Amino acid sequence: MAQNKILILFAHPLFEKSFVNEALVRHIPKSKNITFHDLYEEYPEFDIDVKREQALLQKHDIIIWHHPLYWYSCPPLLKQWIDMVLEYDWAYGKNGIALQNKLIFQAITTGGKKENYCEAGRDRYSIPELLEPFNQTAKVCHMHYLPPFVIHGTHQMNESEADNYGKIYADLLLYLKSNELDLKEMNSHFYLNEWFHSKSKNHG
């Protein structure tokens, strides 16, 4: 079976201060089918090379927006990337079918606990509700938007727990790379974490 090619678009303006994201990135498997692309490293002046980014997207089957949750959204460079790279008549519009049927989801870290993200909680909305603009962006670009992979409670986490999440992320990436994916089954879960946990249990 052909391998899925994965592009991780990583956006963290304070990466050096996030040991949780450091653990996630450190565990990303070395594979010719997994591309790690650090936007703040590549574009410190926010001067995004649109054609280069579009060429990268076209070479991959699964796109991951990997970022911390910043004020219920993404860091500014990733927002600029979305604004500039997803051009009319390329990603959307009458002739914009360059990204058609590609899979996309978000890998997110947040200091808040999961129970805070609900109608009765401090943050009032669930993570998927807060991510609806990204979901709609993907849909307008004819992509399949999947539930997010979310790591809650990073402010209370120790390095051992962060390392464990790094291993789960690595296993998830390897599974996505090597397997045929049932989108209906994936979309029936609230978080991708839960879907992958069920797959891991079934596979021993």
Rank of each mutant, 00 (worst) to 15 (best):
V25S: 11
T154K: 04
E53V: 04
I28F: 08
K5P: 07
P147T: 12
E41W: 01
S188L: 01
L176K: 02
E53W: 04
Y40R: 06
Y43Q: 09
K102P: 01
P68L: 07
K30R: 12
E194K: 07
E53N: 06
T137V: 10
F15V: 06
E45Y: 12
E16I: 11
E22Q: 15
Q3E: 13
K102A: 03
L146S: 05
E180N: 13
E194M: 02
I168S: 09
K184A: 12
L176V: 02
L69V: 11
R52Q: 13
G121K: 05
L146Y: 00
P133A: 03
N116Q: 15
I97A: 10
Q3V: 04
L24F: 03
Y117W: 04
L24C: 06
P147L: 10
K79W: 01
P75C: 05
K201E: 09
I104C: 14
L131N: 14
K59W: 06
K184C: 03
H189F: 10
D38V: 08
V140Y: 12
L69P: 03
T154C: 04
N21C: 10
S31R: 08
K102F: 00
D83T: 09
P128L: 14
L78A: 02
Y125A: 13
G166P: 08
I28Y: 05
D182W: 13
Q58L: 03
P128N: 13
F105R: 07
A2Y: 04
D89Q: 15
P44G: 09
H144I: 12
S198Y: 01
V25L: 14
F19R: 01
